[in-house]
Nucleic acid binder design. Structure first.
Lengths: 358, 358
DNA sequence: ATGAAAGCGCTAACAC
DNA sequence: GTGTTAGCGCTTTCAT
């Protein structure tokens, strides 16, 4: 129970306190045999270095913090996984905090990370039109899935491109009557819709129908709309359906089938955000590669960039420019699959199968 | 850039250092007007208390750590959400670490949390037959989804009961020929299968068929098996299918439908782990309530229990018993739904719709 | 490679 | 209520 300190280890190993510290932080300064003895003493005593003391004494922290608005959302999970992978690849650890849809908790975790002297903090702010970044603080900070003209680092997806790519694909597949649906209250989804609208304007010969309903973007909302569209007389029925999210799209596929039509033979369906949780059984969904993972990776890279800049500034003695505004946009690309009549690739990526989320 | 300390705040507010500390930790000892002035100074300076210094000086940590083996698995997410909710309800924060399937990372995060003097640590160990808990350390610790006779706190699901409940439901629904399938390599799933087997023994008049294939428990594995079963001649065809996981079950439903039969009219289907990510479109799946959420909640309660015990021991001066073995088993209950011919409840829980995981 | 010592920012105990 | 001070465990620096 009594906590083991570096002193105890030193005594047990018969060396000086400073030597134990060196084994931990600068092993190259210590003779191998000594290292061995010290390590053994640590194991014997079950020693775990006190992080607080380490940090307070000026040790370097190799941990990043990530504040997510929720943990039951595929997009945020993609971010978490991308960030974890990239952080680990660069020798950093990652701690994740779930703000559980509460702005108070979001602030709390943010302050906690800052106060913990982590090497950097990433945050996906709660979706909100009025959101503003905080003033630059003492630790590197990156905002994910949002943009701003204020000083800071921002990584987002090109939502308009996501909409554009899917729509261009529809045209290429010979669509004559396209139905677009999904709740576009969120800024990100509105951009997706705008990309779709842009391509629509460029193709006046194709009929576009925008269904703007009080859908909450749940699978069952897509189901209802899909069923309704499929029950129309053939002449008024769309031959291509675009949903702004994958979850809506799989709902639509189920609804179309429930009405007795088939996908992609009668109606083709595409989603828009590469959500690996969206699985329809039998027919794989055409969508856009999941940008969350890449956003997480890019966020970590921005963090490391800030650390490098700060290190350099410290060497040259020049102050860091606190007013820079850096923005990264993650590139989107289409994943064309069965639901729009494409043949599945032989070695298709199992990452996009719901099964991995068992 | 220069970090703001409690000293700076004190100077800015024109009070003593100790007063600022009191505003932070014992506001009741400070006059309201003073509190106000200090708070204002904090805001003006952008002060964030240094957690390391706080902890090192003996402050109480109100943060729990949770080490998960992966973040792309519904069960672990249930745990994270349950733990977060219960922790928050009790005034604690929760930090999540993703070991990303690496035992080295698992150890690393565990050591980090211990060294960070968090108030308690929960860990869902990587599924492994040879797993043993670590020796009791200085911080409260709870292991999730595993059991052991070694000293420690353990919270798990009653996997055998999960299998038993589903199978009893099958009998009640009039099943005559039950097909059971799923990869039972993991200990947890083997227990589920054993619960099924137990009920099978008690009902010799019902035919049970155990399909033990090299399935990886992905949705597409369930799809193949479901299709194959449905294509059998009617006399050899099961009238009830039990999959050890929900993901397999939804795959099976899709497969059965692809073969031209319908669920639940021709074949009834049940899953076994209440995975909210399993969504089939149209027909809702009979399954067992998701135990992950409850396991996370129970884990936090065990952590708090250990903290209480330690507090009490400190008061009485008696040493804490380090050899106790406490085990909690999360109760399972059936969610009977359309896939086994039950009528959906009018106000059915939206939590179990994939849509919330959009 | 060792031993001694300063000090990181804060909390809690103390005297005022 | 306020101001002062010891010391938490560690890293780093400096002399040896």
């Amino acid at each position: 129970m009594a906590k083991v300190t570096i002193q105890d280890v030193a005594r047990e190993a018969g060396v000086a306190l400073g030597t134990v510290s060196n084994v931990l932080n600068h092993p190259e300064r210590v003779r191998p045999a000594t290292i061995e003895a010290v390590r053994e003493a640590m194991d014997r005593l079950g020693y775990a270095p006190n992080q607080s003391a380490r940090l307070l004494a000026g040790g370097k922290n190799v941990t990043f913090g990530l504040v997510l608005p929720r943990l039951d959302h595929g997009f945020s999970l993609q971010i978490a996984n991308g960030a974890q992978t990239e952080a680990h690849r660069n020798g950093y650890d990652l701690l994740i905090a779930n703000a559980a849809n509460s702005e108070a908790l979001e602030d709390r975790y943010l302050a906690y990370f800052k106060g913990s002297q982590v090497a950097g903090v990433m945050m996906q702010p709660m979706a909100d039109r009025f959101w503003r970044p905080a003033a630059p603080g003492p630790v590197p900070m990156v905002y994910l899935d949002v943009h701003s003209d204020a000083p800071g680092y921002f990584v987002g997806a090109d939502n308009e491109a996501q909409g554009r790519l899917v729509t261009e694909h529809a045209i290429e597949r010979g669509a004559r009557h396209v139905a677009v649906f999904g709740q576009t209250e969120y800024v990100q989804l509105a951009y997706r819709a705008s990309g779709i609208g842009r391509v629509a304007q460029d193709n006046p010969d194709v009929t576009f129908e925008f269904i703007d309903e009080g859908a909450r973007n749940l699978a069952r909302d897509g189901y209802e709309i899909g069923r309704r569209l499929a029950e129309r007389p053939a002449s008024e029925r769309p031959d291509f359906v675009i949903a702004v999210t994958d979850v809506l799209a799989i709902g639509a596929i189920a609804g179309i089938r429930a009405a007795g039509l088939s996908v992609p033979e009668d109606i083709r369906v595409a989603g828009g955000d590469g959500n690996p949780l969206a699985w329809t059984g039998g027919v794989s969904l055409t969508t856009i590669a999941p940008p969350g993972y890449e956003i997480g990776r890019r966020g970590v890279q921005f963090l490391i960039e800030q650390i490098e800049v700060a290190k350099l500034a410290e060497l040259t003695g020049e102050p860091v420019d606190r007013t820079v505004n850096r923005q990264a946009v993650v590139r989107s690309f289409l994943l064309a699959r069965t639901s729009t009549g494409m043949k599945p690739l032989p070695g298709s990526n199992p990452d996009f199968d719901l099964g991995t989320y068992l």
